[in-house]
């Protein structure tokens, strides 16, 4: 028996045994907390379980999935998510690239600026939400104060309960939090570009904006691409900001898919329906991830 144990723990001869021991804790957790729930909610989505009858499960086929595609509220929430993802990722990418280019230049206080720009990324979304909620306050908000002083608005506006402004300001708060991540990734890419490339281009008559489009942009397309994909996945899953800033309102103008599923699961307890919807969101995320893997492979082959 003792010898058996000793032989099992003899890792010197076989990599497989040691690997098995080393990856077991990680995979046990991932299976318990990711794979099992996935199967659980898959089964749930083919039933008709509500919180009131949680012990009863009747198989109802794909009717919950049919419901997702005919429910105008769910379709609305998908549209809200799409709008949010598109604008927030676009702004983060453009701003992130411009700021990264600025922070690559030599100037006094550069290392301080590079350090400070990361702080929003370390700020929890709940804090981001309440910061902006306070700054956007309809009576004493500092943003209303600035806009009025600058003559842009005549009267204070309750931005977060306005149909026109609620969504743009949720996006603004998200861009504020998420741009630093893009800056970090893109700046790291910029730093791998050797200076002589620009000097050579300068001699050829390409500098400034022209050099940016002909040299910089092609060379940072890989980090730009990665931050875009990751940013897209973060944005699809965005929840905290919506919850704190608007709770989905006014009406359902800022109810994104994640918030809608959350409400159905934990507020109205439509367990089966929520599971079916979460699978629809999962499919969208998977499409993004697969696109990511495919293009990554392509870039790596190059």
């Amino acid at each position: 028996m003792k010898r058996g144990i000793q032989r099992f723990f003899d890792f010197e001869r076989s990599d497989t045994k040691l690997a098995a021991v080393l990856i077991t804790p990680t995979f046990l957790l991932v299976i318990a907390v990711v794979a099992y729930p996935l199967i659980y909610s898959f089964i749930m989505s083919f039933g008709d379980v509500e919180f009131a009858n949680i012990k009863e499960y009747n198989f109802v086929g794909i009717s919950q999935f049919v419901r997702t595609f005919t429910d105008p509220e769910f379709i609305n929430s998908i549209q809200v998510s799409a709008k949010f993802v598109f604008f927030t990722v676009l702004f983060k990418l453009v701003l992130g690239t411009l700021i990264a280019v600025m922070l690559k230049e030599k100037f006094i206080g550069r290392s301080i600026a590079r350090a400070l720009i990361i702080i929003p990324w370390a700020t929890p979304f709940v804090v981001v939400g309440l910061m902006w909620k306070w700054m956007l306050h309809s009576k004493v908000g500092v943003i209303n104060f600035f806009l009025e002083r600058l003559g842009i608005i005549q009267d204070y506006i309750p931005f977060l309960s306005s149909k026109t402004f609620a969504m743009p300001f949720v996006i603004t708060a998200d861009v504020w939090q998420g741009t630093p991540f893009f800056v970090i990734i893109i700046l790291a890419g910029l730093q791998t570009i050797p200076d002589d490339l620009y000097e050579a281009a300068h001699i050829d008559g390409a500098s400034g904006i022209k050099a940016f489009f002909t040299i910089t942009l092609p060379l940072i397309r890989f980090p730009m691409f990665i931050s875009t994909i990751l940013g897209t996945i973060f944005a699809i899953n965005s929840f905290d900001l919506f919850f704190v800033l608007t709770k989905g309102g006014p009406g359902n103008i800022t109810t994104n898919a994640t918030l809608f599923v959350w409400n159905n699961a934990f507020k109205f307890y439509h367990l089966s329906y929520a599971s079916a919807m979460s699978y629809v969101i999962l499919m969208f995320s998977m499409l993004v991830t697969i696109g990511y893997v495919v293009i990554m492979r392509k870039i790596q082959v190059e």
Partner: peptide, 24 residues
């Protein structure tokens, strides 16, 4: 395959896991 499975797990939307999570 296992490494890919790990990355795959990372990309899953948390909201899809929460309800079963809670019940379990």
């Amino acid at each position: 395959i296992l490494f890919f499975a790990l990355i795959f797990a990372e990309m899953l939307p948390p909201v899809a896991l929460l309800l079963p999570f809670y019940l379990i």
